[in-house]
Amino acid sequence: MTKAVQIKGVSKKYGSYQAIKKVSFDIHDNEFFTLLGPSGCGKTTLLRMIAGFETPTTGNIILHGQNIENLPANKRRVNTVFQNYALFPHMNLEENIGFGLEMLGWKKDKRECRVNEMLKLVHMEQFAKRFPSELSGGQQQRIALARALAPEPEVLLLDEPLSALDLKLRQAMREELQDLQRQTGITFIFVTHDQEEALAMSDRICVLAHGEIQHLDSPINIYENPTNRFVADFIGDTNFLDVNVTGSNVHATSIETPLGINIDVPASGVKVGQDAVMSLRPEKISINKSVDGVSLPGRVMHRTYMGGYTHYTIQLSSGADLRVSMRNNISNNINYDLNEAVTLGFSPASVRVLGE
């Protein structure tokens, strides 16, 4: 697989503060790659170093085989879409898209042809003569994308471009971004702190914390098989319970749980005697249905209706609490009342054991 961007031993210090701690990873050609993490984790710093707005303290940044860490930003075949769009208010949409091409020396006829292609790509042909102030947030976002894609960059960088939009528009723009990436074949590097956004859009996700990579993998593997407690906690919702590891081999990990049961779960690499927690996603738990022989009596302590799901907190007879998420659909249209006695079931195969 061809590598679009290679990050090799890159670190970044601001005085005594280490924003990025010697990270290395590759981004593939024609990939939708996401840098995900909380505020201050280093994701935007990494993006700015790829763009050329910051210089690494150590390490190399390679774009299609060329070292670019010391190349000026305007010499890199990389464009950036910013959170605030950064459209020129005194130019109409055609002029906004064409400005960068003019600066690059494109001839007028070629420039006009490319501007029309970009307006068509983002479904904004009929608005060509309008000014940014006459557009909605979503329309401005499309023009910012068209302007960034017009010079045919090798890589497009997107710095939290959906954060200013409302929920419905964000969801619609996710699909549009994916479609644009597939149509253009350009490598997209997307920065966000929104886990749902990252899961929905990415081919691969790099989860960052404290300037270090915590997990880099496909959305499915990151959600289903997180490498540590931080990743499990940051990506989605989960139940954490302290456990004792009583056995460990290449096939399974045996644990003693505070649920009043001992179970064998998928192999984790956590050894006997290590501090460990079990992670169990709320949607992996069933109410009033034994699963793989697990049937735990409890009582409903809290219920929150969220449209597509109802979330419950169940206190088990062992004293432990588990959060449970049940999808609301025609075949499962059951509301459990507060203080109602229920039993919980889950497959041990859904449990992940993580080192502290």
Results as ranks from 00 to 15, higher is better:
19 A>E: 02
216 L>Y: 15
290 S>N: 13
345 G>F: 00
13 K>G: 11
298 G>C: 05
315 Q>S: 06
16 S>C: 09
257 T>A: 08
155 V>R: 08
77 R>C: 00
222 I>H: 00
130 R>S: 04
34 T>Q: 04
117 E>P: 06
9 G>F: 12
167 L>W: 07
249 N>L: 14
5 V>H: 00
96 N>M: 12
6 Q>K: 11
21 K>E: 09
107 K>I: 12
318 S>V: 12
317 S>T: 15
324 V>Q: 03
57 T>W: 04
25 F>N: 04
306 M>P: 04
226 P>V: 14
60 N>W: 06
192 T>Q: 02
211 G>T: 02
232 A>Q: 05
348 P>R: 03
78 V>C: 02
98 G>I: 01
176 E>I: 11
145 L>Y: 04
289 K>R: 10
297 P>Y: 10
61 I>H: 00
130 R>H: 03
2 T>P: 11
106 W>Y: 13
97 I>K: 08
337 D>V: 07
207 V>K: 13
3 K>V: 09
43 K>E: 11
234 F>P: 15
100 G>E: 02
171 Q>S: 08
218 S>W: 01
336 Y>R: 10
179 D>E: 03
306 M>T: 13
4 A>G: 13
188 F>K: 01
309 Y>K: 09
205 I>G: 11
159 D>C: 09
350 S>Y: 12
60 N>K: 08
138 G>H: 11
301 M>P: 02
37 G>T: 13
184 T>A: 05
177 L>W: 10
86 A>E: 08
325 S>C: 14
239 N>C: 12
99 F>A: 09
28 H>Q: 15
222 I>M: 07
49 M>D: 03
61 I>S: 01
287 I>D: 09
75 K>M: 11
142 R>G: 04
241 L>W: 02
113 C>P: 05
254 S>A: 13
78 V>Q: 08
170 R>G: 14
262 N>I: 00
